[in-house]
Amino acid sequence: MQRSHTVKASRRWLLWLGGVCFGVLVFLASFGSLFVEHSLQKLFRSTVATLPVSEHGMPEIAFFPPGITLDRLVLKGPRDELTVRDIRLDVKLLDSALAIRGRAAGGRFEADLHAEGWGKGVCKLRWKMEGVNLTEVLKAWAVLEKPIAVLDGRVNMEGQYTVPSRKELSRPWTGTGRVQCSLSNASIRHILPVLTKMELDGIEGMISADWNKRRVTLREAALRQKDISLELQGGLNLMPSAWSRTPLQLEAKVKAEKGVLNEKLLPERLRQQHANGGMQVRLSGTPEKPKVEF
Rank of each mutant, 00 (worst) to 15 (best):
R214P: 01
R214K: 13
R215A: 08
R215H: 06
V216I: 15
V216C: 03
V216R: 04
T217F: 02
L218F: 08
L218M: 01
R219F: 00
R219W: 00
E220K: 14
A222G: 01
A222P: 00
A222M: 08
L223H: 01
L223N: 02
L223Y: 02
R224Y: 02
Q225M: 06
Q225G: 07
K226M: 00
K226L: 00
K226H: 02
K226F: 00
K226Y: 00
D227F: 00
D227L: 07
I228H: 02
S229K: 08
S229P: 08
S229F: 03
S229Y: 04
S229C: 05
L230N: 04
L230W: 03
E231T: 14
E231M: 12
E231F: 06
Q233S: 14
Q233Y: 06
G234Y: 05
G235F: 09
G235I: 10
L236R: 09
L236H: 06
L236Q: 07
L236N: 08
N237A: 10
L238K: 01
L238F: 02
M239L: 13
P240V: 02
S241Y: 01
S241H: 04
A242F: 02
A242V: 04
W243A: 12
W243R: 11
W243I: 14
W243K: 05
S244I: 12
S244L: 14
S244F: 03
R245M: 10
P247L: 07
P247H: 10
P247W: 08
L248T: 06
L250P: 07
L250S: 07
L250W: 09
L250I: 10
A252T: 07
A252M: 11
K253I: 14
K253S: 15
K253V: 15
V254I: 15
K255W: 09
K255P: 10
K255H: 13
K255D: 11
A256H: 11
A256G: 12
E257A: 15
K258M: 11
K258L: 12
G259M: 13
G259F: 12
V260Q: 12
V260T: 15
V260D: 07
V260G: 05
L261F: 03
N262Y: 11
N262P: 10
